[in-house]
Structure formats: structure tokens, C-alpha cells
Design a binder for these strands. Structure first.
Lengths: 331, 331
DNA sequence: CTGAAAGCGCTTACAG
DNA sequence: CTGAAAGCGCTTACAG
């Protein structure tokens, strides 16, 4: 049988209350009794039962992370920031990949509720009203990452997507490109697609270039869709010289399509991505892209949840353009 | 206040024991009382407290996954298989990235013990005796993935690395390559480096090619090290025509180095990887590689843990060569 | 500084 | 088929 707090209390000739106080670094004991108790703990190899603790505290040192999928560089990096930060603070993280269009979100929310999770990070997914209702019902603090809520005051951490997309497009325009394609996300996706689309369009307009429907094509952020999008785009608009893909993965798909077709990048086609995940630097040629501070976003999400962040309320994170070799200057 | 089992018992005019039985689909109640209880549960929005349950059962529906890092295609895919399978069976997974040389392993083991985890998946890391002792001390079932224990009977799931490496090397030899480099992992790493090295060497020997020290170079499985390794390799052995990298990431690093130097792949240099992670197909040119069934390995790891797998004991998974465009036939 | 006792929300023999 | 009661391993007023 694993030793319990009772065992150490008995062996140390104190009450369980005292042991508990020592374990939790509260006050109410002499240095001598502390020493004695600690020695006994060591002797019998006692380890506290976090579940018992969770039962009385009605919460656990556990964070749930809801995200669409696990298999993208963005998610890996975000998770990395979250888990490392949480671990340092004594929190565990439970991963909840919600799958296609968030179909498993309700199921995972139920689990996190039952497990008495101490916080929820809700990332890269549109927070439906239904979820928000559930958040408040189960009474677990939430922070949004790379998404936000229109009608509710839930703190979020994200980049100004419209602005970043504007800058990406401007970057291409500044280098003399006049026919610029956009590989967008799902048409109605309000969190990434729409703002980035808006930024693209705005930049075009601001710099006197016409916005053309046929220069825009819609994918799903993944590599395969990047290939297909690039193919469509060339069919619809053979004269484009540059393309802005709103995820690195789709940008790499565009690179692959160009490679298959013998179209040289950046000589015949310039490509700029979004995210600055690891594949951006691994791509051939290395991909110029919008850098998002993904790791830090994960880090600050847990800090916010634990009320350990300097900033109160939502945070807009900085982005920047990382220049590599996939964009050619026409001038 | 959240409703508890007492609240539903009172409102349904039954005892908590009966509610518990219904909740756990045991027997001992009429259809009528079941219906009544279920209705009350619905009415008052009762959800069970998994923590309370965990306290009495002395275990939770939680699996811990220990792995070296989160940011590689291999780990993402493995995690994906694990989490999806676990979720279907009502288990949550806690991620434990043990960091450089597994430094956080003891810390995470402690947490999993305190949390009363129901199982542990220990992946891609050498299980030191110290960890194994801890496994049995904390009395949580363990399965090893992509690793194994020499002296202890812990079930594992992995590919026959030596054989797979042999086949990769043979694949190159079959296509007329005589000077074949090896981009290996850390020299003393017993789980991936040594067996794959052995397979490479054996194939060379079996087919009458000399093994040369200068054709072998040691990295750390990551992209950056692949670049450096390729550079060293060319310095030490300028006449190699093919290279086997024991991870896709390092293979892609080799591709990048070749690209920087204007060395055409596969015309001037053939490259074969290992893992068949997503970057293999995203690479330019698409990478020929050894496919490991990573998702399935994760899937079966959780099945084994839950005694839900057809196979008892350890499992050797099949590998296969996936031919893409990074290897040229010299004949 | 210290302890006795109640209580967290469940499950599980045991008795009927 | 059903319930009363003990107990899982902690924390926390409360009293001294």
C-alpha cells in the first residue's frame, strides 16, 4: 500500500493537519517538527495524492488545451510554449484536439469539466456561443489564443491578422509585384481567413492596384490544399507574379506545385507565407513569411490563466516579416 | 453550487448508491428508476466528478505520454494516434515533453504518480534503470514506444530499426550507389542510432562494399544538424553519391545544404530518409524514405495499456520504403 | 504551534 | 432491486 498522509502523521507523532501544513508551506509549526516530518516523508517514500487534494479544493493543477489538430508546426510550437510554461508552474496539460470543424469540442469540454481542470486554453477555433455558454456554466477560466469572441469578454492573445496580411501584401507590392494572388483559408472562417483577406484587399486598394476575384483561391491551411490552390490560381490568373499564402503550409504547397511545373521560385513566382513555423526555414527555397511569436503566445496564455502575466486583459502580439529567399524584387 | 450525486439522489427519491449504479451501468435497478434518475440528471444538469471517482478507485482515466520533444513531425503524429485512440475510450492524455536528454523525466513521473495516472507511454527515450525502478514503485502500467528495455520485461512497440536501415542502404546499393554516406544520430544513442548504424554497415558488407568511417557523420535528428552533417560529410568524403539520413528532418537538412551549394538532388546526390513524416512529402524534391506506421504505433500503445489489443506482449511493427524523387538510379 | 473533526463527491461491500 | 454507512486521502475552519 502506498503511504498516505496518515502514515507520515503517525510515524512523526503529529496530526495530519500539521503534515498538510508543512506540505503546503503554510505556517503553524516549528522548524523542529518540520524537519521531523520531512524526514519521515523521505523515509517512507510518501508522495501526496493530487486527486484527493483536487477533491477538496474543487480544482486541479491541470490545464486543458483545445485546438483543431496536432499535426501542424503551428500547433506543435504553441503546445510547446504552453506545456513548458505550465510544467514550470506545477500544472499538467491535457491535449484536446477537437478535429474537423471542432466536432469534438463539446466532448472535450465535458471531460475537462469532469476532471475539474484549472483552466482552458481555446486555440485557433471560433468560439461558438454554445461553447461560451458552457465555459461559464462549468466555471473554469478560459483564454483564447489566435481567436477571439465578438460578443463576449473573454481574454484573448493574438496577432493583428489584418494588419499583418496588409504588410505581407505591401511587401510584395513594394517589390514591384502588380499581380498578386491570395491563397486564403476557408471562405467563411472569421478568425484567420476574413481578416487576412481584408488586409490583402486593403493593401491592394491603398497602393492603387485593382482587387480581382480571380486572384483569390480558398484552401484549408494544409499543405495539400496549397498545391491545389496554386494550380487553380494559375489557371484562373496565369499572369500573377507573386502569391501570398495565409499559412506556411499552403505556401510550401505552392512551392511544390511550382517545382512540379518547373516554375522557378522566386524567379518566375514569388511566394510569401504566414506563421513562420519550422517548415518556412526548411523549405526550398527558404520561405519569406510573417513571423508570429507562437511559443510566446502559448507561454503568455498560461500566465494569463494563472494570473501571472503583467498584462491584464487581452493581448495583441507583435508580428514581423522574416525575409528569406522566396520573394524576388521586380524593380 | 454544482449539483452532486446527492442532489440527484434526493430529487429522484433514491439513494446515492442507486444513482452511482446507474451512472456506471452496473445492475441493480429497474428500468423505471433508471429512467427517473436519468431525467433528474438531465433536469438539474448533473455531471459526475471524475476526481472524486479517482479518489476511491485509486486511478484515473488519464494517460501520461513521455516524449523527448513536441516539435517534430514524428512526435506530432505519434501523439495524434495516442490522443485520438485514448479519447475514444474515455481517457485523457497529459503530455510530458522530457526535454534535452530526458532531464524532466523524473519530474513528470512524479506528477503522473501524484495524479494517479492510469497508464504511461514512454516514447523515443532510453529507459534508464532509474526510471524503470520508478515505474514499478509507482505501480502504473507502462508501454514503450520506439524504444525498448534490455534487461526488463516491459512491453514495447517498435520497428526493427536495424532491418529497416539495412533495407534503406540496400535500396541505394541496388540502384548502383557505391559511395554511401550515413547521417546518423548521436553516436551512443542505443535506441535509434546504433541499430540503424548496424543495419547500414551490414548492408554494405553483405553487398561487398567497404565500410568507411569517413562516410559516417553524427547529428541529433533535427533539421539544423542535417545541414551541418551534410557539409561535414562532403568535406570528409567528396565522392559520395548517396546518403542515408536516419531521420527525415536530417534528410531535409541534407537537401537544404545541397540546394545552397547548387548540388542537384537526385542528379548529383541521392538522399533517403527515415520515418516518413509529413515533411518527406513536402520536401523538394519529395523524399524517398522508410515509412514507419507512426499513428498506428500510438494507437496500439494505448490499446495495449488498456488491455484492448489483440496482441499480448511486445509488437514489432512493419516498415516499408516509400519511393519518391530523391534517389537516382545509377544503372 | 498543534490536533480533532468535518467534509470534498464519489464507490462499494454488506444487509435486507 | 435498494439503501445506510464506511472509506478513499486530503484540506480547513475551529478550538485550544
Amino acid at each position: 500500500m502506498k503511504p498516505t498522509i496518515k502514515d507520515v502523521a503517525k510515524k512523526a507523532n503529529v496530526s495530519v493537519a500539521t503534515v498538510s501544513r508543512i506540505l503546503n508551506e503554510q505556517q503553524g509549526y516549528t522548524a523542529a517538527t518540520k524537519q521531523k516530518v520531512l524526514r519521515v516523508i523521505n523515509e517512507i517514500g510518501y508522495t501526496p495524492n493530487a486527486i484527493a487534494r483536487g477533491l477538496v479544493k474543487k480544482t486541479t493543477q491541470t490545464l486543458g488545451v483545445l485546438l483543431p489538430s496536432l499535426t501542424s508546426g503551428f500547433m506543435s510550437e504553441l503546445l510547446n510554449g504552453i506545456v513548458n510554461t505550465a510544467h514550470k508552474r506545477g500544472y499538467s496539460v491535457i491535449i484536446c484536439p477537437t478535429g474537423d470543424r471542432g466536432k469534438d469540442t463539446p466532448g472535450y469540454l465535458k471531460v475537462l469539466n469532469e476532471q475539474q481542470a484549472g483552466g482552458i486554453i481555446f486555440a485557433c477555433e471560433w468560439p461558438k456561443d454554445e461553447y461560451i455558454k458552457e465555459f461559464s456554466r462549468i466555471h473554469i477560466p478560459v483564454v483564447l489564443v489566435s481567436t477571439y469572441s465578438e460578443h463576449h469578454q473573454i481574454p484573448y492573445i493574438r496577432v493583428n491578422d489584418k494588419q499583418a496580411a496588409y504588410q505581407a501584401t505591401k511587401y510584395l507590392i513594394d517589390r514591384g509585384h502588380q499581380h498578386i494572388g491570395l491563397i486564403c483559408g476557408r471562405k467563411k472562417d472569421p478568425i484567420a481567413s476574413i481578416p487576412r483577406f481584408e488586409g490583402y484587399k486593403q493593401a491592394l486598394t491603398d497602393f492603387g492596384l485593382a482587387f480581382r476575384e480571380e486572384n483569390v483561391v480558398y484552401g484549408d491551411f494544409r499543405y495539400e490544399s496549397g498545391i491545389k490552390c496554386m494550380e487553380w490560381l494559375f489557371k484562373k490568373s496565369p499572369n500573377i507574379t507573386a502569391v501570398f499564402a495565409i499559412s506556411d503550409e499552403m505556401a510550401v504547397g505552392a512551392l511544390s506545385y511550382a517545382y512540379q511545373q518547373g516554375i522557378k521560385v522566386p524567379d518566375k513566382l514569388s511566394v510569401i507565407g504566414y506563421d513562420d513555423t519550422q517548415i518556412a526555414e526548411m523549405a526550398i527555397p527558404p520561405l519569406t513569411t510573417i513571423h508570429q511569436p507562437i511559443y510566446e503566445m502559448g507561454e503568455r496564455a498560461v500566465k494569463m490563466l494563472l494570473n501571472d502575466d503583467e498584462t491584464k486583459g487581452s493581448i495583441i502580439m507583435p508580428y514581423r516579416i522574416v525575409e528569406r529567399d522566396s520573394v524576388k524584387s521586380m524593380t
